[in-house]
Amino acid sequence: MSEVILTVQDVTKVYTMGAEKVHALRGINLEVAQGEYLSIMGPSGSGKSTIFNMIGGLDSPSAGEVLFEGAKLAHLSSAQLAWFRCHKIGFIFQSFNLIGSMTTLENVSIARVFAGASLEQAKQEAAEVLTRVGLGHRLTHLPSQVSGGQQQRIAIARALVNKPSIILADEPTGNLDLKTGEEIIDLLAEMKQDLGITVITATHDLKMLSRSDRVILIADGQIRRITKKGEVEIEVGSVDGETVA
């Protein structure tokens, strides 16, 4: 296994909702290697999104640590977290989350601007990445003028433009039809292969699972099972049976 890029150590998360305490995570331990393709599965409410938020530095654990290349995320200031999210993490969302009033090119280039590039340089680099994901001919379109699959491609380009170490994709195919979803999975796998980026996805999509190096099954805030590549395809049926309600 290559170098560990991300470590999740005994992470628990407790939300207080009125008088009630909700245990979203109950002691998660996880190591992710550089260049790994990891899928996290679990029913809704299992704690998937909470783990995602912790890894992306969007939320902090109640106890335990999330370490990125040895740096403890909980100890970072908001400006350091902004730097971390900008340079090290590429977020992909189920509902794309593109900015409606910005063109395809602007949606991608703004991430480069945050990383310190000038507007012209950012646009040029954004155009290169957009061409790479097959959207070189849609640069001046608004998100509302392109299809769902194309919107997710824009989001992938936006996630890739700062050359992050980790792509965090939360149900990236959840809002797409089967064929488009498949194209998106292929694209992610290709980027992982070509650029050596670590991909962490939350998914129910069996096609994504078969691409993964490891599949982690989460339920009730705990890791129930870790399945490695090779075992995945044989066990897909049972994994499916256990988790899909």
Binding site: G56, L58, A82, C86, L98, A111, F114
Partner: peptide, 10 residues
């Protein structure tokens, strides 16, 4: 929220 995920500073 999206802009902050992309690394926007406050």
């Amino acid at each position: 929220g999206t802009l902050k995920c992309l690394g926007a500073h406050d």
